[in-house]
Design a protein around this nucleic acid. Sequence first.
DNA 1: AACTATCGTTTCGCTACCGTATCAGTTTGC
DNA 2: GCAAACTGATACGGTAGCGAAACGATAGTT
Lengths: 116, 116
Amino acid sequence: MTVHLRASEALYLWRSAMLAMVRNDGPDLTQRQLTILLQIYLEPPPHTVRGLAALLGVTKPVITRALDTMGAMGLVHRTRDKTDRRNVVIQRTVEGSEYIEQLGRIIVRQGEELGV
Amino acid sequence: MTVHLRASEALYLWRSAMLAMVRNDGPDLTQRQLTILLQIYLEPPPHTVRGLAALLGVTKPVITRALDTMGAMGLVHRTRDKTDRRNVVIQRTVEGSEYIEQLGRIIVRQGEELGV
DNA sequence: AACTATCGTTTCGCTACCGTATCAGTTTGC
DNA sequence: GCAAACTGATACGGTAGCGAAACGATAGTT
């Protein structure tokens, strides 16, 4: 890339990658769900419901529901914290890692095709 | 940016921008809706329902419903094609332009903070 | 032991999305 | 002129999201 990403470049990149994701027929995650998933896989653990809720600026049920959905898809896994059983620790899965890696590849590929 | 966007950089950029969008409390568009909106604003007209459906690889009702929703939000506008009244021409709005511009600014800002 | 605080989940009523099938209106082709 | 083709919209039944409120389980406090 050049010195910085320009707005128009950014938007073209965004559209291309989103288009590839939509056409890909994979899990159709909401923006919130994808944000949660990225946070889990990009930042070191532990990840908790309340932490994610605070980060995203949403209520806790939003996180619980998103984890329900993505858990059913196999993208994340939940376990009770053994030291404080009120907490739930959100863990990564192989399937989730593969999804994130695929997303990264899609963005990079679209960026290359745009010369970004 | 350097020579190319690496996968990890791409994912961090993606997460940061999506996080900013989620926290922004703006219209909560689905991935499909946002893809449609970007297509309308980045590519020259005319844009039609069938064209967008073919591009995204979805059925026509998906496009109609997305346009219903985004139309109610003021992000797009629909008009009948005068030369062929079967067609509907999808048009941009000031509000939609502002939304897209804001999205571009968010991505660029997050990219700058990541040094991408 | 009893009270309080915290954590994640569940419930409620509601809204919006999905895919499939079908629709009315318009144009095309014979 | 009239049937076929095509466009976008609509109906249907089902699924999943939302915010607000309440809940059960656990931990901390006195």
